[in-house]
Structures are given as C-alpha cells and as structure tokens.
Design a binder for these strands. Structure first.
Ligand SMILES: [Mn+2]
Ligand SMILES: [Mn+2]
Ligand SMILES: [Zn+2]
Ligand SMILES: [Zn+2]
Lengths: 145, 145
DNA sequence: GCTGAGAATGAAAATCATTTTTATTATTAT
DNA sequence: ATAATAATAAAAATGATTTTCATTCTCAGC
C-alpha cells in the first residue's frame, strides 16, 4: 500500500477529507528525499501552486505525522524538519557541525540497549531521539590544511 | 575547584567580567537541582532581585554553557532547559510522555557503540543527544485501572 | 580617588517559527 | 439542492529567544 492510500484511510477514519491541497503537499513531500522544514516545503508548494497557504503546509505535515507517513526530526537549529517515515526503516542521524551534512545510521545493538535501559528504569519505551554530532571526514581534512 | 571559580576564570580568559547579576544567576542556578528553563530561572531571580532583567538571564545561561558549567537539554516541549554540567558525569534522559517525569540514565555500552558508529561513518564525535520517551511505572499502573 | 574604554545592563522592540483566528469556500451526506 | 461540517488563505497572534539602544558599571592606568 502506498503512502497516499495510507493517508486517505487515515483521513477517512478520522472523518477528515482528502483535498487538492493535501494531495499537492503530500506529493511534493514524498518526491523530495530530504529532511524538509515546513518553510522549505512551502517554497516548493508555492512554485507548484502559489494559491496554497503556508498554514496548510504546517497543518498537513502535522497530519502526515499522525498518519505515520512523516516523522519529525530536530537537528538543533531551531527549525523542525520532516522526513518520510512510511515504508522506511527506523534510523538515527549523525550531523556534521561544520558543514551541516547529515548521515542516516542504524545500530541494532544500540536500539536493544536502549530498550534494556528503559526496562531497567521501569519505563515502557515508545520512541526515542538520538543525534550524534561531530566533524565529518571532508571537514576534518579541510581543517587540517 | 568549584563552579564559581571556573566561571571566573572563563570570564577572565575572555576579557569578560564577573558581575553582581551573574553571581546571583549562577548561585540560583546551582542551588536548584532541576532542569530549568530560562523563564523558570528568571522567576527565581526576580524573587531575589526584581531589578535583574530576563535578557541577562538568557545571556548568562549562554555563558555558563560556554564555560562548561551548564548544559542545554531539550525535552521537546519547545522550551530550552539547562542543567548543571560542571562536576557532573555525562548522562542522558528518559522522559515519561504522560506525567513528564525525567530520569537520568547512563550506559557505557551505548556510549561506546555511539563512538564506534561515528567512527564507522568517518566522523570525529564531539557530543550527542539521546532522549528516550515512554510511560513510567507509575503511569502504567494508573492507566491499567 | 579620578578617568576613559570597554563591558554589562534593563527595558523595550524585534525576530522568527509556529499557531490561531476569521471570513470564505469546498466537500459530503441526505 | 440543502444543510452540516471540514478546509482553506490570509492575516493576526503567539511565545520563546535575541537584538537594540541608551545608560550604568567595572577596572586598569594614572
Ligand atoms: Mn533521516
Ligand atoms: Mn539531567
Ligand atoms: Zn562536514
Ligand atoms: Zn509518568
């Protein structure tokens, strides 16, 4: 089942409606393979149809998260970003504090230990955020000069 | 060496000055053993001396971070929080999404694997953020009723 | 003790991402 | 079609944080 269909079913279940605007926003969100801020996505939407408002972009991104199609990521620059979630495996991020490059990473050992850690503290874990910050290979070289 | 002295040396090195306001803010910050938002700290500061402005609280917290005395923590409610860093061991947090309770945790295995992961990707790691979210024991029981 | 240069301050205004309001338009069930 | 409800664009509001700016402090050198 593709993301669009998932969104439609989610909307139906909540007595909400699939609208032209939501379709445009979803399509542009999915076709871009980056971590988009609402503002960045809004810029793309404007090119496609300047009549769509930015509040609708914000609202739709919220819905996409609820529907499990998007996920919020916060890299620490004061802007929320969204990435496709549906059909993608969970991952975390390493961010270069020099050039801003982001690498997606996944370590099942870490995930298992997080689970253990939560259990140890009596928590039933629902989700987590993990961001590693450092200097990427390219920037290390550039600095050495 | 205590935090106040560390701060003084940091300021001296940067040609900055230890002022009455910075002393008040530092003292109140240290004596409170919580994760304080600038606004919360400002409220405490106001009680002690209403003439101190909130911009000074914001500015001082920034300096305390630079000096290694405070650390920023973001629990995801749109407010920055600060916790004492100097003289304390590194730790991460588990947050109950029901009651907001926060538990400080540390797992050397996870830390080591994070280091490995960064190396694998060619990054020189500088720091990281890890927040686990779940339901605490108390809230699990309350829900079962 | 004075003085001048730079640092620090409080108050208010500005910023900036995000949310809410409101009047209008679109969609859906009957 | 009609009525009920949801969705929208645009603009205003919000709220945390930052910046501005005029004034006050601090301190090294006299
Ligand atoms: Mn990603
Ligand atoms: Mn803590
Ligand atoms: Zn880099
Ligand atoms: Zn709880």
């Amino acid at each position: 089942m593709d993301a669009k269909r998932v969104f439609e079913e989610f909307l139906t279940k909540k007595n909400l409606r699939m609208t032209y605007q939501r379709q445009v926003i979803l399509n542009l969100f999915l076709q871009e393979q980056r971590h988009l801020s609402p503002e960045e996505l809004y810029d793309m939407v404007k090119v496609h149809d300047p009549s769509i408002g930015q509040a609708t972009v914000y609202r739709t991104l919220k819905l996409l998260c609820e529907a499990g199609i998007a996920r919020e990521v916060e890299f620490g620059d004061g802007v929320m970003r969204y990435e496709p979630e549906y059909g993608r495996a969970h991952h975390d991020h390493i961010i270069c504090t020099d050039c801003g490059d982001k690498v997606e990473v996944y370590d099942p050992e870490i995930e298992a230990l997080q689970e253990k850690m939560a259990e140890r503290e009596g928590f039933r874990l629902t989700h987590h955020k993990m961001y590693l910050y450092g200097i990427c290979k390219k920037c290390q070289k550039r600095r050495r000069r």
